[in-house]
């Protein structure tokens, strides 16, 4: 198998996010190997103090999201061979506090996530039969390409508004709110609409920059969800008719 040598520049911290600097490494990778493989190679053969996160290694858990050459991506799904030639620059996700090296605290992301009441709240908690959602329903049609969020935080890290306004809900939370609001089996859409209607932190803060959509590893059009939420906010009675 053909291999390539890559120069990898990794953002390092002394401890607790203090003393940031860049450490250079050289790694040998096969064409199908990923940025995560590069990190493991560095960890095993060159520097066992390097800190990064990962779990599933197949793009399902969202744990390994880091900034690769300035763009938030999943390390396990990004192949250096498919990136433009040149050194690989690996940094922690922007807009989130650094714990150490490439590991960030996801607290700000999940604080916003929790605000939109992300869990299902049954319209009829006493129901004993399953409620089906027809494939032709508004929920099924409008949510089909928006349900795959793995809460990796890439969208939050890429969002220019989240970077300047800590109160902003962020794209993932707004997408989650949109899905829950659309769901005809759910009962808390009024509370969620109130949260996303907030002038300082809600959907209205989105400036259509498309950074979130561009970096989403699952290809979710988060900006579209936010635009649809804005239209629902202008006409809340439309929710009842869905």
């Amino acid at each position: 198998m053909k291999t390539h040598t890559y120069e990898v520049r990794v953002s390092r911290t002394a401890e607790a996010g203090i003393g940031r600097g860049i450490a250079g490494f050289r790694v040998e990778l096969e064409e199908r190997m990923t940025v995560l493989d590069a990190l493991f190679q560095i960890l095993r053969t060159q520097d066992d103090s390097l800190v990064f996160r990962c779990a599933c290694r197949v793009g399902m858990c969202g744990t390994c999201a880091i900034s690769v050459n300035g763009i938030p991506r999943l390390a396990c799904k990004t192949r250096p061979s498919q990136l433009p030639a040149g050194p690989l620059t690996l940094e922690p996700l922007p807009n989130l506090p650094v714990i150490r090296d490439l590991a960030v605290s996801m607290d700000p992301f999940f604080e916003q996530w929790k605000r939109v009441l992300p869990e299902f709240r049954a319209a009829d908690p006493e129901a004993t039969t399953l409620k089906s959602v027809p494939a032709a329903s508004a929920y099924a049609r409008n949510s089909a390409d928006k349900r795959d969020c793995i809460s990796c935080g890439a969208c939050y890290a890429a969002c220019g508004i989240a970077g300047t306004n800590r109160q902003y809900l962020g794209p993932a939370a707004l997408n989650r709110a949109y899905l829950r609001i659309l769901d005809p089996r759910d009962s808390a859409h009024r509370e969620r609409l109130r949260v996303v209607d907030d002038e300082r932190s809600g959907a209205w803060r989105c400036h259509t920059q498309f950074n979130c959509t561009a970096v989403c590893p699952k290809g979710i059009s988060l900006t579209d969800s936010i635009m649809r939420l804005k239209r629902l906010l202008l006409n809340p009675s439309a929710v009842e008719k869905l």
Partner: peptide, 11 residues
Amino acid sequence: MRFLPGMVAHT
């Protein structure tokens, strides 16, 4: 964060 086309359009 690198400037992507949507961000360039926004700016």
